[in-house]
Nucleic acid binder design. Structure first.
Lengths: 197, 197
DNA sequence: TCCCTTGTTGGACGATCGTACAACAAGTGC
DNA sequence: GCACTTGTTGTACGATCGTCCAACAAGGGA
């Protein structure tokens, strides 16, 4: 008779990823206030002590969760760009509207974003991470604008404006889905984009 | 010899306001994570028990703090509108750019906003409060657009787009003031506004 | 002047927080 | 099959959380 193992070891990388995924789920379900080491460990099906073994603290875990979720968003945008083909305006359009479809437009994602934002002002290292990821997003947009013929002198400000438009629409869409639907957000963004470029 | 009073009674309304102001200061200084009943009471110079006497809980206090701060923002915008005179385009311009000057553009305000957002998805009553205040902001903008000649059919979507632009720019400006300054945000918003109307 | 209302205090209470750590066991190399 | 490494467990710890409430006192009315 073989005894049931008390636990199974995981590849360190896989374990980290499962903790990050559990953190994202707890943030989505409970909000920032209900996200604790114990709740995350319970969600991941591991012992509370294991969180401390992989992450310096809960702030570090939230920051890595944000980075991971942002990478998923980036991948979704990549897929949208690939689907758009080679026409520069079509690619720009795909970039802008992708944020208002699943999986990017999601109230669950927003919880991770807000938890991360709440750490930005208090912690310098997390502020740096935010600046880095925001700059990367804007840089991609500037490239797309350049391919559409936007003069280099205008790209920076155009990219800031369009990024702000996307962020603001996405925020409101996730915060109160009743005000307007994802489809309307896409239409609004598309119309604004046409006027801004 | 007159004994020093152990405490002084305050007008109930004044006491509420002082607690709300203290809550805003603690949110700004400590962030959402460090904002507790005790910290707020200490900041306001009162006993911890008094917070429970005036507010149902810390969530209710944060929600009222948000409403109060939003009223201050609204007043600042009113002042900007008054200063702009009677010309409709000038009033619209003042409305849009006011968000990127003191006292609206402030990393301290952002902390209250984020703490409030983190409650929106978890609590239905707070979600209603958010929808109400967002709708009021948009309604004012729609009026200004109407005065500028925007056809009624376009007002709703234009207002949503411009609100998103303001929110996104304001968020990034407060989150990382190093990326661009308030003056540049004003210029970007003004340029985008010209194209969008 | 005295009493009565009630704003205010300050601590008790149980729950939960993040962290630390000694003990255990799964998997690997030999 | 044995020892060694280390991923994992479970709990103990002190701090802090939100809430509650009996006692106190300030201020106003009779």
């Amino acid at each position: 008779m073989t005894a049931k193992p008390a636990y199974t070891r995981a590849e360190p990388d896989a374990r980290r990823q499962s903790l990050i995924a559990a953190c994202a789920r707890v943030l989505a379900r409970e909000g920032a206030a209900g996200t604790s080491v114990r709740a995350i460990a319970l969600e991941a099906g591991v012992s509370p002590g294991l969180v401390g073994h992989y992450f310096a603290g809960i702030d570090a875990l939230v920051a890595e969760t944000y980075a991971h979720v942002e990478a998923q968003v980036s991948a979704a945008i990549d897929a949208a760009l690939d689907a758009a083909g080679d026409d520069p305006p079509a690619r720009l359009d795909a970039f802008v509207t992708a944020s208002f479809r699943a999986p990017v437009a999601s109230g669950e994602l927003l919880a991770t974003w807000i938890a991360f934002w709440s750490l930005v002002r208090a912690r310098a290292d997390i502020a740096r991470q935010h600046d880095r990821q925001y700059a990367a997003f804007r840089a991609r947009l500037e490239d797309l604008l350049g391919a559409c013929g936007t003069p280099e002198a205008d790209r920076r400000r155009s990219a800031i404006a369009i990024t702000a438009l996307i962020d603001g629409l996405w925020l409101e869409l996730c915060l109160s889905p009743g005000t307007f639907a994802g489809g309307e957000a896409q239409a609004i963004a598309r119309a604004a984009l046409r006027r801004l470029t």
